[in-house]
Design a protein around this nucleic acid. Sequence first.
DNA 1: ATTTTCGAAACTTTCGAAAATATTGAATAA
DNA 2: TTATTCAATATTTTCGAAAGTTTCGAAAAT
Lengths: 260, 260
Amino acid sequence: MPKTLPTAPFEGANENLSATTAPQDVSREDAATFDVLRKMREDILCCVLKPDQKLKFGELRLRYDTSVGTLREALSHLVSEGLARTEAGRGFQVAPISLADFLDLSELRVYLETKTLADAIRHGTDAWEAEIVSSYFLLSKLAAPRPDDPLSVKQEWGKRHKRYHDALVATCRSPWSLHYRSELFDQARRYHWLTMIHSRLHRRNEHLEIRDAVLARDSDLACSLMEKHIRTTVEQAVSDVPGLIRGNARALRPAGRRKS
Amino acid sequence: MPKTLPTAPFEGANENLSATTAPQDVSREDAATFDVLRKMREDILCCVLKPDQKLKFGELRLRYDTSVGTLREALSHLVSEGLARTEAGRGFQVAPISLADFLDLSELRVYLETKTLADAIRHGTDAWEAEIVSSYFLLSKLAAPRPDDPLSVKQEWGKRHKRYHDALVATCRSPWSLHYRSELFDQARRYHWLTMIHSRLHRRNEHLEIRDAVLARDSDLACSLMEKHIRTTVEQAVSDVPGLIRGNARALRPAGRRKS
DNA sequence: ATTTTCGAAACTTTCGAAAATATTGAATAA
DNA sequence: TTATTCAATATTTTCGAAAGTTTCGAAAAT
């Protein structure tokens, strides 16, 4: 049973209110733990750790060179973000992916991306515009990765892509919307990664179109382009990622093959 | 640097897809850890652990009778949920609250609650209706708590209130919407708690009205009632919770007074 | 009186090993 | 053959303590 905490009893709650904002996003956490968390997240997003893969502490300890305690902490975080799962006493595994999941999260993304974008445009500043210009520039320097590009190129493109999309909505005033938008964007990155690996389809320069609509403060156009951007991505994944559309996805499993 | 993981290299990703759904909500986690997590969450929601309060491991260890490792894991989870914060090397604290935060999260709640409710009505089953009837019944057995009711009554009402609202949207088909709806509902509970403590306002039986609209499958009415339900709650908090509306909230701080 | 310095105390973070639990595979029984 | 038991093995979970930071406060200096 819980022992008592040496703290004043709580009666009225008329005291104790603060004024700051709400969800804590990626801020610098505990140096080491956060480092492991970031690396693991990146590895899951890039499918280095594959969907459904069992995450054994033994292997993880070697890979990230840290202790189980630190690993558990990071894994716990990933579970909340929906990138991993855990079950009572049988450890952790990478969260599964599925067409249904991708459709579901994309639908919510359309709402959150357009909502935050509209609000960001409404409250845009010079610095906001500058970061959009700058991050778009960096993104445009890298052509959209092809299936045979090396991993590092794909990863760098992924980083710049995220930075650009973050820049677009940076001045949105709703911390909660931004927080969930960011989580879903990361979720979608796993599917983007699979698409990048499989699809050779060349898309017209949607990022440029969005940038220009945003800088022109044309909220309706920008949002409608953004919506199309997301939906096109879904269609591309559906048509080009084998196994995603069929229910047989279950047949294609993690890395682990049974031994002997 | 990361040592190599003894795992087959990842080239095509044409393998490895699974079919299940996405976010892992509150499912049974690791018995002990999850227990601590649940208790801490409840304590934060009921302001036993007050906004901005420093969460020291020494005290927490006594209160929850567990080790620091387990505590860190739970705290890590709470940070992801937005109920706690942490900063590099100076520990954890309960997430702050503010009017701006409450307004922001309530706005998003209106969208998610109505969206999930509409979808739940669309896919409602007999079992769904039965749980709504049953959870409403349990809720109605307890009159809305008054400021001077004992803590345990307020807590029990909170549980039944949550169960009822969960029941309403249970058949919604969007796991991501449900997941975020649930997180925001919990967030709102902190503010509800403060309202319960301060307000003597008697509200008409909104839960009954919503129940009947839902059972009648009148989606438009149900959603509009739900929206009003949420907005009324905000207004009640704004008018009855002292310190919430004024910016001076900062003056009213945690429990900790300096010693000697 | 105010600021700065420095050492002690308080607290957080990280780790490795012990305890608990689940999984595997071989031997036995149906 | 198929199912079951049981012990050996592998893996997860929990804990306590060492190592590393930050905070606090008294003494020295301005």
